[in-house]
């Protein structure tokens, strides 16, 4: 048996028919775990490396089955349905027995063989442009396993892309570049003190990795989130342009205006809604960013 295809990964979701995670039609695999803690995180369920229980209270019909099933008495009914996350070990028993899918385990284990089976399904639609995208979380938080998946995809002729925060062990890069057709590389902020404040980590490692990836010949698209009042300054746009211009194979820059959709997901995890409307950039700010990038000869995708 091929040991490689036994490799396990922790997956929060596999989404087919993704049209904006790289070119063409793609299947995106969201991997669990991330070293960053962005204040504006859109996928909070991918932050922790461990399995978690999601509770969609709007779907619950109050049948009481989960109360009976849970050995840790995490569920209770007094007026309404409450879930005591302190007691929950994310064993998943209640999720299996919940008729209305109001409970869901986030972070299932997949072997590479199982993943390939799913990724194969849309091969007819990938064509010359599409393929698979690894996302997260930070896919490289799962180390060599993520690289092995990329390799396995390439070996079966699937085109690969990876969405990364850039914050990972540089020793992974050489192999990663070899098996990745396109890097969608996040630049959250070019100002390091703000970076630390809003994401919990320094951007030095990220920028060093980026340079290394570029030196290794990686094809890169920069993805820059715009958060009103945080990184919507001209200085930042100029820095982005400089970085883009310094790369050997840069496809261009995608500007991603902040939105608050992640907020609802946080609630399913039992966290406070982290969505902040004041963070949404204005059309004008977006325009300014575009203009500045253009003036430096950067293609805005």
């Amino acid at each position: 048996m091929n040991t490689k295809t036994d490799t396990q990964l922790t997956v929060t979701e596999i989404q087919r028919f993704c049209m904006h995670d790289g070119p063409g039609i793609r299947t995106t695999v969201f991997l669990k775990g991330c070293p960053l803690r962005c204040a504006w995180c859109h996928n909070p369920e991918t932050q922790k490396r461990e399995r978690e229980l999601l509770f969609y209270s709007n779907k619950c019909i109050g049948c009481g089955q989960c109360v009976k099933i849970c050995l840790n008495d995490a569920h209770s009914f007094n007026g309404n349905h409450t879930l005591d996350r302190e007691k929950c070990t994310a064993c998943g028993d209640c999720a299996k027995s919940c008729c209305s899918a109001a409970l869901e385990i986030c972070g299932k284990q997949y072997t590479i063989a199982n993943l390939l089976y799913v990724l194969e399904k849309d091969r007819a639609f990938y064509g010359d442009t599409g393929g698979i995208t690894l996302s997260g979380g930070e896919p490289f938080a799962q180390g060599c396993s993520a690289v092995t998946l990329l390799q396995a995809c390439k070996e079966t002729g699937l085109s690969t892309a990876i969405e990364t925060s850039g914050y990972f062990d540089p020793s992974l890069l050489e192999a990663a570049v070899q098996y990745t057709d396109l890097f969608l590389w996040d630049i959250k902020d070019t100002d390091d003190s703000r970076h630390i404040r809003y994401t919990g980590v320094t951007n030095i490692k990220i920028l060093n990795n980026l340079k290394l990836a570029s030196d290794l010949g990686a094809k890169i698209r920069l993805r820059c989130i715009l958060v009103n009042g945080v990184n919507t300054d001209r200085e930042h746009y100029r820095n982005i342009s400089d970085i883009a211009n310094s790369l050997s194979k840069c496809e261009g820059v995608e500007l991603l205006p902040y939105h608050a959709f992640g907020g609802t997901k946080a609630v399913f995890l039992g966290l406070a809604d982290n969505g902040k409307k004041e963070w949404i950039p204005t059309e004008q700010q977006l325009g300014t960013a575009k203009n500045i990038l253009h003036s430096y000869g950067i293609k805005v995708l």
């Binding site: 049209m19 904006h20 790289g22 070119p23 063409g24 039609i25 849309d122 007819a124 639609f125 990938y126 064509g127 442009t129 599409g130 995708l301």
Partner: peptide, 18 residues
Amino acid sequence: ASVSGEDGLQSLISLMRG
């Protein structure tokens, strides 16, 4: 919105080819 831009156009083409 899902078929906008060059990526969206490519996707639509790929959908029909598939």
